[in-house]
Amino acid sequence: MIQKKICMLGATGVGKTSLVRQFVQSVFSEKYHSTIGVKVDKKVVRVDNQEVTMMLWDLQGEDDDFKIKASFLRGASGYILVVDLTRAASLEAAKRIQLMIEDEIGQVPFMILFNKNDLVDEIELDHEWMVEFAGERVLRTSAKTGENVDEAFNTLAKKMV
């Protein structure tokens, strides 16, 4: 069995924790976000007949009052960057976070998820912006409906192994 450390990042309120909750059954309380800034969950997935244990470090969202602790990123084999489709500002925050990640841990596999795709009427980001940031393979997700959630994590797992 292979273990991989994966960090969930993004601006505050983009839906990181909801995505994780959709993907795994949490053990630890979410209050750890506001206390030590991170909560760890685990999900075992199968990639090419090999079990991969994904240790999901769900980091507290970055905002004006809270900056992501670099030490939490150390040793990550990949990361998921979450953008809120209904808040254009979250895309700018994601760009800053990605720069910080590459500065801290270098180039590692990652996924950029455009979340809250279920709120169709409130979407602020147009497709060009998304493609500009994430490339042609833009993955829209919804933590509420579960849309593309498993696919996002499984894809990242494949990239890492």
Binding site: Q3, V27, I36, V40, K42, M55, W57, K69, S71, F72
Partner: peptide
């Protein structure tokens, strides 16, 4: 049971304390 998650949280706590 859940030793791997405890391990990760322990690391997070030590990192948190260090920082």
């Amino acid at each position: 049971e859940d030793a791997d998650m405890v391990s990760a949280m322990l690391t997070a706590i030590t990192d948190f304390a260090h920082d």
